[in-house]
Each structure stands twice: as C-alpha cells, then as structure tokens.
C-alpha cells in the first residue's frame, strides 16, 4: 500500500517530536494553515451547493445531528460505566467524540481526490453542523440543565467559533461566486490544498507526539477507548449515510466524520463551560490515539466498508 505524501509529513512530524528534535513551526503558521484549510473546504462545498437544490439537505442535517447526539451518549455511557470516569471528565471527553475533526476530514478529502472518487458537495455543510451538537450535549451531561448556565454565551461560543465561522463563510462565498467566480482564487485554495495540508500535518505530528507522551500516564483503557470508539462511530455513520443514499465517497466521508474526534472547538468550549474536567484526558485520547488511527488506518478501512455496503 502506498502512503500519501501528506501522511508521510505527519509521520515525519511525529518522529521529530518523539525524538525531541528542535523542530518547531511558528504558531502563526499553524493558525494560517488552518484558516486556509477551513476556507478551502468551505469554498469547495459552497461551489458544489450552488449547482443543486438546498431543500433536500434539511433531512440530512437532521440525521447527522441525531448521529452526533447518539455518539456523544454512547461515549458518555462507556466512559462512565466501564471507564469509571468522573462525570465531568466523561462528559467532556464524550463531547470530543461526538464532534468532528476538520483535519481528519481534510485528509479523507485528499485521500478520495488522489483516487478520483467523487463525493457529495454538502459534506462541507454537514461537517460544520456536526461540530456543534455534541458541545451542547456535553455541557448538559456534565452539569444538567441549570438556570445559572449562560446558554446565550455558550451558544455564541459553539456556533461562532473559528472553525464553524470560516467553514460557513467560505461556503457562502463559494455559493455566491460559483465555479466561474472562484476561478481566479482557485490557485491558492484548491491547487495548493495538498501542500497546505502537508505542512499542517507536519505540525499535527509534532502536537500528537506530545499527547502520546501524556498517554503513558492515562493507561490502557483510554487507548482502547480511543481505538474502539471511532470504529463504533464509523459504523453508525455508515448506517446513517446508507439511509440517506450517499455515494461511496460520501459514505466514506460521513463515516470518517463520525469516527473523528474534535481537538480544537470542543476543548476550548469545554474548558470554559466545564472547567473541572481535565483537558489532558480528552486530548490524549482524541489527539494521541484517535487522530493518528483515523488518518493512518481508519480512512482506508471506512472506504472499504463503504464500498462493500454500496455494492451489496
């Protein structure tokens, strides 16, 4: 099996980090790369949406929200039951797993593109939608519905975080401009996508290497959870995608989204809304185990499952 160069960049960063190399990318670069990736995904989705009716998307949006809520509840039950996590830690970690990782999605998009496999343009919109519900449910699981919780502020935080804002903004621009309007900026956002992703994954490798060190402290249960939870979620995602009649490419992406765990939007929101939860636990699982598992083994596996389902 040939590895994509973007994956090699990730492994390079991971190795450099584990060997305690001096290599360090400026924080501003990481920020800029993530902005380009989010906008590119948004633009691409918007461009595709401009060519189709939007109304049929509503049931799909409803379905993925339910999918996210089920994933969050399942993760919470596993962490509370067999995992014996404290309530706040279980709720915060479950929220990471009910939400999505844009980086994982980007790798899956590149993986499909390299093999010439098409997918539905609305995947970008589903990606943006799937960031949010788990955050709100995670907060409810941690604290119950209390009057003193400032839902206005939390909603603002969840819906207008950096990721969702850039995705929706890019989508709107892509939708208004259409393929012809986007042609002049195609060079930066579409042609450079893989190069930007490669650099971004180099930094991700460095970040993940630090979480792997953290993982030694948290023990085997968290590692098992970080591997098992994405597999369960991917199956749920495949089920929902099949009900919605997605193509093999779309099924692969929905399974990947379901399997992925957030490491940007959710940690920030949980840090503020459930401060007693220990961020080291959720990040060790989502970054130290689930992210590398998904991009190295998960995506090809989900694609294989998706093509099996669609053939049968």
């Amino acid at each position: 099996m040939q590895l994509d160069p973007v994956i090699l960049f990730f492994l390079f960063g991971l190795a450099a980090g584990l060997l305690r190399s001096e290599l360090k990318l400026p924080a501003a670069l990481y920020d800029s790369l993530s902005i380009v990736l989010l906008l590119a995904i948004g633009l691409k989705g918007g461009e595709g949406l401009a060519q189709q009716a939007l109304l049929p998307l509503l049931p799909q949006i409803g379905a993925v929200i339910v999918l996210c809520l089920i994933q969050t509840l399942l993760a919470f039950a596993i962490l509370r039951g067999p995992g014996r996590f404290e309530r706040a830690d279980a709720a915060a970690t479950a929220a990471h797993y009910g939400s999505v990782s844009v980086a994982t999605f980007a790798v899956a998009v590149a993986w499909l593109a390299a093999r010439g496999i098409a997918f539905e343009p609305q995947m970008a919109i589903l990606l943006a939608i799937m960031e949010v519900p788990a955050i709100l449910l995670g907060i409810i699981l941690a604290r119950g519905i209390r009057r003193e919780t400032d839902w206005g502020k939390l909603g603002h935080e969840a819906f207008l975080g950096k990721g969702v804002t850039l995705l929706l903004g890019g989508m709107l621009i892509g939708w208004i401009a259409g393929p012809e309007g986007l042609a002049p900026i195609k060079g930066v956002f579409f042609d450079l996508f893989k190069g930007v992703l490669a650099l971004f994954l180099l930094e991700m490798g460095l970040i993940v290497s630090r979480q792997m060190v953290e993982l030694k402290r948290s023990g085997p249960f968290l590692i098992a959870f970080g591997l098992g939870m994405p597999l369960c979620s991917a199956l749920l995602g495949l089920g929902v995608g099949t009900l919605l009649g997605f193509s093999t490419g779309g099924l692969t992406l929905l399974a990947t989204l379901a399997a992925s765990a957030s490491y940007i939007a959710v940690p920030a929101a949980m840090r503020l809304a459930v401060p007693e939860a220990k961020p080291a636990i959720s990040l060790a699982a989502s970054l130290g185990v689930t992210f590398p598992f998904n991009i190295l083994a998960g995506i090809p596996l989900y694609h294989w499952l998706a093509s099996t389902v669609n053939r049968g």
């Binding site: 990481y30 970040i207 940690p267 080291a280 990040l283």
Partner: peptide, 12 residues
C-alpha cells in the same frame, strides 16, 4: 499544568 509552549490553541 506542564509545559505550555503556545504551539497550538490549547497550549497558549
């Protein structure tokens, strides 16, 4: 709380 090296969002 460990090393906080500002390399990415959660470590600033």
């Amino acid at each position: 709380h460990g090393l906080r090296d500002a390399n990415w969002d959660a470590a600033t």
